[in-house]
Design a protein around this nucleic acid. Structure first.
Lengths: 183, 183
DNA sequence: GTCTATAGATTGATAGAC
DNA sequence: GTCTATCAATCTATAGAC
């Protein structure tokens, strides 16, 4: 309990960033949520941006792992389902953080720094693979739309009476439908 | 030229908000982009939030108009396609602004003020209608995912070599596929 | 309608004691 | 590791001259 101050800060920050957004949340508020002083936070994180980055990093890493499986997989119906499923699992596992990614995009992109191009590349390779071999322009649009469908998993209160397993199954089917995969 | 200062401010604000986000864009920067002083902006808009609201309002109004057609339409394949198509047209017409909606959500929601519940209701009615009569939980998730697909129209650089008409056709089909509509 | 000047508040961050 | 105190910067917004 004593030694996970870093983790506690992270948790409170995730909650507040998620509720009011990154820019609208001050370090003072985070500190108050922990019963500490602003200055104490700086012992654990060198800056507000570094705190944001520490929050985001696990999601980035897992997303990259899931997406980069495409490097060794052929573009078959089963493999596409598998890759999409793993990406979806990552989003569901880090739901709160993934939400920040879309709802606080400007701050997140700046915090990423040089990692930004990495992520862009991961996304690009994923989309290219999903579009299949010799893709048309339409195929590439559908590949992009298919990943947007996965993002529906972050859709907040609308989906509260659906279990994660059901959500996963429905969105995976929907994503495949966008790609026009036969079952 | 002289009398559309209000519009000119709006345009520069849209550009800068879109590029760096609402919170990271100061009124000073907007003023500099226009060759004016910060103080002059306040003659045309009473606050930064009011400026944001003025930017967003047309999109809100058109989205509401498009979505509320469901009130008088039966849930048939043709009608669903028509409604989704009109919603998509609104997004394409206000692409830059709609992007702010997702990428600066916290600021936008606060700026909406009492309008927030209105918009929420519009969305809810649209989703309920899209889910069809006597919907299952899965139908409601698919309805939500179908509108997320429309949001792919805002997907930036990835889709730059696709014309708006083609984009519209592809995403409309994709959205219908998510809803499992037969053609 | 636009300017200069400034108020008033808040923020991220640091210094240094304990 | 946490605190008090404080700095420097920046921002939104206002007052009042022109």
């Amino acid at each position: 309990m004593a030694q996970d101050t870093r983790g506690a800060i992270r948790d409170v920050a995730i909650e507040l960033f998620g509720k009011h957004g990154y820019e609208r949340t001050s370090l003072r508020e985070i500190a108050e949520g922990l019963g500490m002083t602003k200055a104490a936070l700086y012992y654990h994180y060198p800056s507000k941006q570094a705190l944001l980055l520490a929050i985001i990093e696990p999601l980035i890493a897992e997303w990259k792992t899931a997406a980069d499986k495409t490097e060794t997989l052929q573009h078959t119906t089963d493999n596409v389902r598998q890759v999409l499923g793993e990406c979806l699992d990552v989003l569901l596992r880090h739901r709160a953080i993934a939400g920040m990614f879309t709802r606080d995009a400007p701050a997140v992109f700046e915090a990423l720094g040089h990692l930004y191009e990495d992520i862009l590349g991961v996304h690009q390779r994923l989309h290219t693979w999903l579009a299949g071999p010799n893709p048309t322009g339409a195929d590439r649009v559908r590949a992009f739309a298919a990943t947007e469908v996965l993002g529906a998993a972050l859709g907040g209160a609308t989906l509260d009476d659906t279990s994660d397993e059901e959500l996963r199954a429905i969105l995976l089917d929907a994503s495949c439908a966008v790609l026009r995969l036969k079952d």
